[in-house]
């Protein structure tokens, strides 16, 4: 009896995790901010929300990724953390993360 109750509880918990993670959980992923840092270092002023408000030239974008999209992006190590903790693209452009074929580890 205890086993059945435990299995039911664990199964329900797993289902909730799968449904919430699979359909509702979102992550905000930014363009590769390190790229913008490098551009700034060579004298090009850029606009990064929350960092700079001066230039019109380059605007890093952000996109909401669902957890399955993040799973796919992580198959080719597409996302990492910026120094302030933001999730950023590991590739030069954020658009490279969706619909990309994985590369070797």
């Amino acid at each position: 009896m205890i086993r059945k109750v435990l299995v039911t509880v664990l199964l329900a918990l797993s289902l909730v995790m799968t449904i919430y993670g699979g359909f509702f959980r979102k992550f905000l992923v930014y363009d590769n901010l390190e790229k913008f840092d490098k551009l700034k270092n060579v004298g090009i002023t850029i606009k990064v929300p929350g960092y700079e408000n001066s230039s019109q030239s380059f605007t890093p974008e952000s996109q909401w990724f669902s957890e399955p999209e993040m799973v796919r992006a992580m198959t080719f190590e597409g996302v990492k953390r910026y120094k302030d903790g933001k999730l950023i693209s590991n590739y030069p452009d954020l658009r490279m993360l969706k619909g990309r074929i994985p590369c070797p580890t």
Partner: peptide, 23 residues
């Protein structure tokens, strides 16, 4: 296993992956 490791590297827990494995 690869996805759990990668997510943990970001300080995140892949809920859907753990859920699927647990089911």
């Amino acid at each position: 296993v690869g996805i759990i490791g990668q997510f943990i590297g970001l300080g995140l827990i892949p809920l859907s992956v753990i859920g699927i494995v647990a089911i």
